[in-house]
Design a binder for these strands. Structure first.
Lengths: 342, 342
DNA sequence: TGTTGTTGAGATTTCGTTTGCGCAAGGCAG
DNA sequence: CTGCCTTGCGCAAACGAAATCTCAACAACA
């Protein structure tokens, strides 16, 4: 590995001159800069980021912690984060937590040990106090979910409002037996989405059938299994809302398995606007769309601010909520019994 | 930040004792190890990986370079890589190249500068010699694609055979006007897939209509645009094969746009076995399935070998090819004109 | 000509960790 | 009792970049 000393020796100058030339800092002649840069280029010099990190106390690493990189939300997030890092000269360290607080903590420890410049995190439901404590020393933003113990700005959506609108839409179509697939109570987002669902009924003087609420880990398999039982009931739900991206996959799996090639006799609302949803049954799946890219970009902008202005984050954590929107395609219609009645 | 010196001072021992105790190396008493570990725990010590990297000359970072993290192939790859790194005590640095050799090179430079322990790369079509040269000094494995200039073991599929089988399947169903969506010639995979397509015709004494081959950047939009023109022809293709994951998305977009809610009058074969393909038109999309997880795992195993046995990679690069399989669902049927004839 | 200011560049130190070497104490065989 | 080996631990030297300090050379000005 070629170091600045090698370049300095080759050029007959001192290492400090080489450093200054490469950094382009003040008090160095243009001619020296040119000579040093050319020599560095020719010798294939690559700066040792470890040495730089040691001296400066910070590295060019940004940590991104997500529960699942195959989830379309988090894949989009990773793309935005990767692009942003690329543009700003950072490297992205990807940590997949699988929603395990323990894995999350080990990743955060590693990030802290690497003196990473900043962290973007989708916290797990049961995030540990130790993890929060470790993150307190680093510029941090949280996305989608919000952990109470984490004093970091949050960027997400108004989950309650999203499900209030979605459930309301189905209620106004005439549905009453509306199944809900939702994550478990340890997630603030799941609680808010559940509340939105309940409140939509309440706003119309109704009450949801709590048997139709399937709460569990936000995984496709979870949603799929819970839903199959519901669909096989004597009186099945007339509509289903999935309140999570993975749960939407589970919903579509279960519905496909139950109806086969028949057109599903149940209205569906998905969560998130993955490309694949456009193809559902030829007409597309109606969904609750989240502006994930905008969220990630806002979080990144805030993180950059925190990095460049250290100590400015001492004020209490801010929360930025984006609005979701309904993308109406063909998967939600009035219920069959009402059609008969009308 | 608490360092080993702090722990040493607190305990009245020397820093080297602390290091050895934490490393659990030889010539250290069990009692000392216990005391040091407890003190470190209590003081919240986290090892500075920069200092460690500087001393040891290598870091615990693994670079993963993929063209597009939203592509289901690469998302799966990232999941496997992340899990593997997690288990082995490494951190994963995600680099999204967007298929630009320039971005690829800048990421590789950064990885080299970070003295990363190993690199897993899906090379761009036009990978630069400088990039290959940089990677020559680090344990490297390449996945899916193979760059000629890169002396690194490759893990991928038999692309020619995959399209030979897929095209042959459609030919045997009676199709003759089979459109092909494929990446551009700079990609070795695209060339091999194209060859498989041509060879399937040749093996039956036939010749493909070259007008039906759409070659371009492996992006959804690319496949979609090229295909729309074909579908609007007076004599459209009776079947379409997409030879790429993103191109498959493009294919489904174009077909959805052209047929709307009507059932598509064209047979389809996708590439890769994304969850979403199961839901296509209720019956599912027939696809060419790639064992991406197995590929990523094999590549990781090889990379670990290279890392632990330095210098063992001096022999010429090996190539490991996995076989693809056809997943037959409902999207490929005999052509309509033959149905009328029969 | 002496003083001051400015610019270019060398010398030294610092970051936290690891590791080769050396020292001291205790055990054991000769 | 002496010499050697083993065990446990301290000392100090790296590792590469970069900041600070220092110093020389030179120009402008009184």
């Amino acid at each position: 590995m070629v170091t600045i000393k090698d370049i300095a020796r080759e050029l007959g100058v001192s290492p400090s001159t080489v450093t200054r030339a490469l950094a382009g800092s003040s008090r160095i002649s243009a001619e020296t800069i040119r000579r040093v840069r050319q020599q560095a280029e020719q010798m294939g010099y690559v700066a040792d980021s470890a040495a730089r990190a040691m001296r400066s106390g910070t590295s060019a690493l940004i940590g991104l912690l997500v529960p699942d990189i195959q989830n379309s939300f988090y894949a989009t997030m990773a793309r935005i984060a990767a692009q942003s890092c690329q543009r700003a000269g950072y490297q992205l360290v990807l940590s997949v937590t699988e929603d395990h607080p323990q894995i999350e903590e080990s990743h955060v420890r590693a990030l802290i040990g690497a003196r990473c410049a900043g962290v973007m995190v989708v916290p797990t439901g049961g995030i540990r106090p130790a993890t929060c404590h470790l993150l307190a020393g680093v510029p941090t933003v949280q996305m989608i979910r919000r952990a109470e113990g984490l004093r970091a700005d949050g960027f997400g959506v108004n989950d309650r409002k999203a499900l209030l609108a979605a459930t309301g839409y189905l209620l106004d179509l005439g549905h009453r037996r509306i199944a809900l697939l939702v994550g478990d109570k340890s997630l603030d987002t799941a609680r808010a989405r559940f509340n939105g669902y309940v409140d939509a009924f309440a706003a119309r003087g109704l009450q949801p059938d709590i048997d139709l609420v399937c709460a569990g880990a936000p995984r496709a398999s979870q949603g799929s299994e819970a839903l199959r039982a519901l669909l096989s009931r004597r009186v099945p739900p007339t509509a289903i809302v999935a309140a999570g991206a993975a749960l939407t996959e589970g919903m579509l799996d279960a519905v496909s398995a139950h109806y086969g090639s028949r057109y599903p006799a149940v209205s569906l609302l998905g969560f998130g606007d993955t490309a694949a949803f456009r193809w559902w049954q030829g007409e597309g799946l109606s969904t609750i769309a989240l502006p994930i890219a905008a969220i990630a970009e806002a979080a990144w902008a805030r993180l950059q601010g925190l990095i460049s202005a250290p100590g400015a984050a001492t004020s209490s954590a801010a929360v930025v909520s984006f609005d979701t929107s309904m993308v109406l395609r063909g998967s939600a219609r009035p219920p069959a019994d009402q059609t008969r009645a009308g």
